Amino acid sequence: MTADPTSPQPPAHEPTASEPTASAPAWAERDFTHRELPGGLIMRRARTSDVTAIRRLVQPMVDARILVAKEAVNYFEGLHEFRLVTDPHADGGERVVGCAALHVLWEDLAEARTVATDPDYRGRGVGRMLMEQLLADAQAIGVQRVFCLTFETRFFTSLGFEQITGTPVSPEVYVELLHSHDENVAEFLDLARVKPNTLGNTRMMKHL
């Protein structure tokens, strides 16, 4: 049976889900939803079923007062901000071994938050790969500066972050940010009410 020459013909080549089309912006190639990493690890966006694993991963850092405790509902509300690194198992399961979230604060400003790596996987570049992806995500959506509050100053310095003092926004934006109920915004503004939770942390910024 021959094909009907009058019927619509499929294109000679259709791009796969991971292949950007010719009209896609340049940054689309870096906006990975599922990315293979060295050592058999995978980077992907978080799903609702990952919240329990994310909370388990960050709990030791919460206990050590490195990260501020959050309720489960806060993780669900901000789930779209998370990138994860997972270690797939032969049986089809996986282990969440790293996480990081990018939270937009203002038109040109975002925060890298909840950056955590499983102790068994430290030294394999998990945190660096997550942060590099978050910085690419920030550029993709038009963010020009990324803030973090951290004990790991050497790590963030290696990524181009620098320590800041004061609040590097205009007085008008400062007033707008005061309306936020997000505790991390209060940390960015260096408000006195969050000082007990951030003692010893360093406020750092990277210009993209």
Rank of each mutant, 00 (worst) to 15 (best):
Q133C: 03
E187I: 09
D63N: 15
L79S: 09
K206E: 00
L159S: 08
R95G: 01
Q59H: 12
T52R: 08
F147N: 00
V51D: 02
P11C: 10
L159N: 07
G200C: 05
L130S: 05
A101W: 00
T167Y: 03
G123P: 06
M1P: 08
A116E: 04
F151V: 08
V175S: 14
E111T: 02
T202Y: 02
S49L: 04
D50Q: 09
V194M: 09
D120G: 11
A192M: 07
C148Y: 00
H179T: 14
R203G: 04
P196Q: 11
R95H: 10
T48L: 06
F155I: 08
M1I: 09
T202C: 11
T21G: 15
D91H: 05
V175F: 02
F147W: 07
E111K: 03
A136Y: 04
R113G: 04
L178Y: 01
R30H: 14
G200Y: 01
V104F: 00
A100Y: 00
E183H: 10
G142C: 09
D182C: 08
T167D: 06
A138H: 08
V126H: 04
E14Y: 04
M129K: 14
V173Q: 14
A186R: 13
V73K: 12
L105P: 06
Y121S: 06
G166T: 09
P8W: 05
A140R: 11
P10C: 12
Y174F: 14
M43N: 06
V169E: 04
Q59V: 02
T117P: 03
M204Y: 01
T33Y: 12
Q133A: 14
V104S: 08
L159T: 08
I42A: 02
T86F: 00
E71M: 09
V185I: 13
Q9E: 12
D137Q: 12
G40H: 06
F147S: 00
T167A: 13
Y174N: 13
H13R: 13
F155V: 06
L189D: 02
E94L: 01
G160M: 03
V104H: 00
P196V: 08
